[in-house]
């Protein structure tokens, strides 16, 4: 895919959105997963948010400068969506159980 020519601005936009979605999915899943494993919500939230920005930066750079155009976008957008949906499902399970 190295022949694809894209404007830097579109790469930055993709990196911002894709990186954000991936990070959102990651922290949501990290929090719900931790709570499911018995960790206190706020402890899980603090831990996830400490990792959030380094992870966002990593994803941003990967999408913005990567030679693997489609792979970086697929991982960020599809991965982010899947993690978000998983977190949603896990939350529903925990809330339903009431613990």
């Amino acid at each position: 895919m190295k022949h694809i020519i894209s404007h830097p601005l579109s790469n930055v936009l993709a990196a911002l959105l894709g990186g954000y979605l991936f990070t959102w999915g990651f922290i949501s899943l990290a929090i719900t997963g931790s709570v499911f494993s018995g960790v206190d919500f706020h402890t899980a939230e603090h831990g996830a948010l400490l990792i959030a920005f380094p992870l966002y930066l990593l994803m941003f750079f990967w999408i913005a400068v990567s030679q693997r155009f489609w792979l970086s976008r697929a991982v960020s957008f599809i991965g982010g969506t899947l993690m978000t949906l998983s977190a949603w499902y896990l939350q529903a399970t925990i809330v339903q159980a009431g613990v």
């Binding site: 990070t23 959102w24 922290i27 949501s28 929090i31 719900t32 709570v35 206190d40 919500f41 706020h42 939230e45 948010l49 400490l50 959030a52 920005f53 978000t84 977190a87 949603w88 939350q91 925990i94 809330v95 009431g98 613990v99």
Partner: peptide, 29 residues
């Protein structure tokens, strides 16, 4: 600076998507 406001503005999972779980944990806490 980003971390300070993360849970309020930049990644507000606890007041949006994970609000039900957050409220449940607040009551338990």
């Amino acid at each position: 600076g980003l971390i300070i406001f993360a849970s309020f503005f930049y990644f507000p999972v606890n007041s949006t998507m994970l609000k039900p779980l957050h409220e449940l944990s607040e009551e338990i806490e």
